[in-house]
């Protein structure tokens, strides 16, 4: 337990004893971050934005056919961590990622890895629905087209229909395929984005607060959808809503100021958290 006074972050939180803790290299993770036969594994992941140490030595697995929820107060690094999993952070100039992240045993930050197929395997749904300013059909067909997944129009039609069905949107939009995707309601737009992601048949879907811009009804539709999607995909979801985390996920990871504080079964985390910080957060004492 060394206190690093040189770090600029300063006060980093209240410790178990109520003592003010200073920013250290990293904190031990409580609980079990590893699972058998994981789809993705992360070991010793550190992320820096310029001088800022945003993710500190995080290790976490994402298993097959499970939903992992990442919770924590704003600015704790959960979105940053999520964006490491498909190398979306590459688009930010000042961002530097260290450590090892694997997908099916392959290091995704390896020299020979191309981010283009990686992002097709690890799809992403964003906080704000961001359909392209194109027709509904073209929105879903965009991924399959750039990756050449369809031989002809018939196959493409099929992919579009299946993806929209899986996203639970087909019945609502089947007669509106040529209408702009931006004309749909917020919840429909988000499901369109999910359909767009599914259309390239990823293995993992990352969701960055997918319901934060939606009303409760649209949210519950999307939550049901997430539950169904885990039959086929591994899902990592960042959420601000603890109710949502407890409803949709099997495992929950609690982040705090760049540290992964605690990981465990969702039921256990929300009923008997083992770390003081986790307990403080889920009981609403801060966050």
């Amino acid at each position: 337990m060394t206190v690093d006074v040189k770090t600029t972050a300063g006060v980093s939180g209240i410790g178990q004893t109520g003592r003010i803790l200073y920013d250290r290299e990293s904190r031990e993770t409580v609980g079990e971050p590893f699972v058998e036969g994981a789809r993705m594994t992360c070991r010793g992941v550190n992320v820096y934005y310029g001088d800022k140490h945003a993710i500190k030595n995080v290790a976490l697995d994402i298993g097959r056919n499970e939903v992992v929820a990442m919770i924590g107060p704003s600015g704790c690094g959960k979105s940053t961590f999520l964006r490491c999993l498909n190398r979306m952070n590459d688009t930010i100039d000042t961002c530097r990622v260290e450590g090892e992240i694997t997908l099916d045993g392959m290091d995704i930050y390896g020299k020979e890895v191309d981010v283009v197929p990686l992002r097709a395997q690890v799809g992403m749904v964003f906080q704000k629905p961001n359909p392209f300013p194109k027709s509904i059909y073209d929105n879903v067909a965009y991924g399959p087209r750039i990756h050449g997944l369809a031989q002809n129009k018939v196959e493409l039609d099929e992919i579009v229909e299946t993806s929209l069905r899986k996203a639970g949107l087909w019945e609502e939009v089947k007669d509106l395929m040529t209408h702009p995707g931006t004309g749909l309601s917020g919840g429909q737009q988000q499901r369109l984005c999910i359909a767009r992601t599914i259309a390239v048949s990823p293995e993992v879907i990352l969701m960055d607060e997918p319901c934060s811009a939606l009303d409760p009804i649209a949210t519950s539709i999307i939550e049901d959808l997430i539950d169904e999607l885990k039959q086929q995909f591994s899902i990592a979801i960042v959420t601000h809503s603890m109710q949502q985390a407890s409803r949709v996920s099997q495992r929950t990871a609690y982040f705090h100021l760049g540290d992964l504080i605690e990981v465990g079964d969702t039921a256990q985390i929300f009923t008997t958290p083992r770390h003081q910080l986790t307990q403080d957060y889920i009981t609403g004492r801060f966050g």
Binding site: N86, V116, P117, P133, Y142, G143, I146, R196, T197, V200
Partner: peptide, 11 residues
């Protein structure tokens, strides 16, 4: 967000 959406699909 438009760019992120496209990158996120592997464009």
């Amino acid at each position: 967000a438009m760019r992120d959406g496209a990158y996120g699909l592997g464009a």
